[in-house]
Design a protein around this nucleic acid. Sequence first.
RNA 1: GGCCCCAUGGUCAAGCGGUUCAAGACACCGCCCUUUCACGGCGGUAACCCGGGUUCGAAUCCCGGUGGGGUCACCA
Length: 487
Amino acid sequence: MSKARVRFAPSPTGPLHIGGARSALFNWLYARHSGGEFIVRIEDTDLDRSKREFEEEILLSLRWLGLDWDEGVEVGGQNGPYRQTERLDIYREVAEKLLQTGHAYHCYCTEEELAAEREAFMAKGELPRYGGRCRDLCQADREKLEAEGKRSVLRFKVPEDRIISVNDMVRGKVDFACEGIGDFIIVKSDGIPTYNFAVAVDDHLMEINHVIRAEEHLPNTPRQILIYEALAWETPSFAHISLILGKDRAKMSKRHGATSLEQYRKQGYLPEALFNFLSLLGWSPGGEDEVLSMENIVEQFQLDRVSKSPAVFDLDKLNWINGFYIRQSPLEKIVELALPYLKEGGYVPEEPTGQDKAQFRAMISVVRNYLSNLAEITDHVEIFYKDPTYEEEDMQAVLKQDQVSQVLSAVRQRITDAGLLNEESAKAMIKKLPKELGIGGKKVFMPLRVALTGHTQGPELYQVIPALGMEKTLKRLDKAIAVASST
RNA sequence: GGCCCCAUGGUCAAGCGGUUCAAGACACCGCCCUUUCACGGCGGUAACCCGGGUUCGAAUCCCGGUGGGGUCACCA
């Protein structure tokens, strides 16, 4: 069997949607698993909505996710150009052929006429579609209409009484009756091809042999097959993967929260987490492990393990897996990735010094355990910047216990004596405290925690002290001692 | 509404006619670890949409119903 050639063909009318990303991912996985080729083509035939900025953003998102392509826009290849608006001559030529072989014809109906026709059908309770008005226009009719300056579109002549079978790799055989299709437009009045026409032409010319795309395209497939047949082209295999749904089980859209990959990137989700998560949406390796490396997924990915039923996008699970990757990644990497959020929150100078970085490193190492995305880091880092006031009731309750000022003073003494503490020495010092002071653990740790962080819960104290640094540690201790001593 | 797709716990899902038969993960609950929280470890609650068939035997096959979804553009 020849090499698999698959493609992802986004239209640059918006950022890369989470569903689009998943389609791209599955195509890429299929290609990489089978040693085939992955092509990226831009479908920009919607002149009004397509924007170059979107194209760039989509490409950036794909790369961020970790995908690369063997052929396509930006990387070139044997079958270019890879942007549909740069292939207009090609479509024109194919359209001409269809016209000559009687598979297509000019239609002069105006939008108003079509709308009226549609309404008439509806009124009669029939399905609204093109009735075939211009189907059998003779040469003279056409010349007359042309002379009147009427604009025309090209329609594909759909055969009657035929059943088109789509042999879908995930769904099996799906039949469509031509009766329900109606002659569809292949070239718009401005000469630009429509989606159904351009995809078929491009997929064939680019030698795509497996079309993997979202289920919403399933009803389009018979139209494309008709075009392949009219041109005597071999049809590719199709695989329609199920949709990604929002919490309410409707197709994911803006009202379900973040829908573009870019939004997740900005919130501090790691590409490997999204990659892992998205690959599990509709596909399952069958084993028990769900945290899988890119290599592992590539190795195991198969289309026959792709689910037919739609999948609800589960943010909880994404959060979990992303948090997992945040904890697993090398600290240096997380420091680099977290810095922008800290900068934006005003916690870090634009140009941090080496010493600053060491401090952040300690801090980030402490708070990363609490994160499900990097943007959350500013919330957790607050304890290191905002000096506690100890005004809250529960803070007061803790600090006003017996012996608190003695405990805090003792700690202060030890820290000053020891100089700058690191995690190990801080841990050793803290551990000995209850015994040395002859006071129960809870009575020493809770006041200390409150004094240092202004909270009754949080990271290990031996981590807090080094991350806080000597200056702040002593300052907070002094303030807490003052509060504890006052009555 | 027509056409089409789908149907295992709250969510993602394993299962492809019978010694695994109801895995695993997220979420939730409990316990342990930690004299805090989180992480981590251990355990628990929780599912085959309904009705007919086929079969010695159905979550698994067929039909119907119900439910959900997609699609019906000179958008892709």
